[in-house]
């Protein structure tokens, strides 16, 4: 089981963490909500929880709770630009369907 990220995503995560001045890594996960069942979570992490799994990417830590991992195993996190907008995107092989907006999904 593993989670990875692209170089572009890693560069941004590193700079955001530096800018924030604290935090041990980035939490990626899912929560049950939204029009299509599940939604992605992307947060800074200050403290680890008991069921957290940590994936190292160079000097960065990607942190996933055990429950989320089954939904996003094999996901690659990317950072993309679309016009003026920019942000993170989950390339998740487990996804079966997304809601129209792409903010939530089912597996």
């Amino acid at each position: 089981m593993a989670i990875s990220m692209t170089q572009a995503a890693a560069d941004r995560v590193r700079s955001f963490l530096q800018n924030r001045g604290k935090g041990i890594g980035l939490r990626v996960g899912v929560k049950t909500t939204g029009c299509s069942g599940l939604a992605y979570v992307l947060e800074f992490v200050d403290t680890l929880n008991d069921d957290d799994q940590v994936f190292e990417h160079d000097d960065l830590k990607l942190i996933v709770d055990g429950k989320s991992l089954v939904y996003i195993d094999g996901t690659q996190l990317d950072f993309v630009k679309e016009g003026l907008n920019e942000g993170f995107q989950f390339n998740n092989p487990n996804v079966n369907g997304e809601c129209g907006c792409g903010e939530s999904f089912t597996v």
Binding site: R27, K31, T33, A39, G87, C99, C101, S104
Partner: peptide
């Protein structure tokens, strides 16, 4: 696919929120 930003711990917004 909507593009996501990193939230503060515990502050992730629900979709469309």
């Amino acid at each position: 696919m909507a593009l996501l930003q990193i939230a503060e711990p515990g502050q992730s917004a629900a979709p469309h929120q």
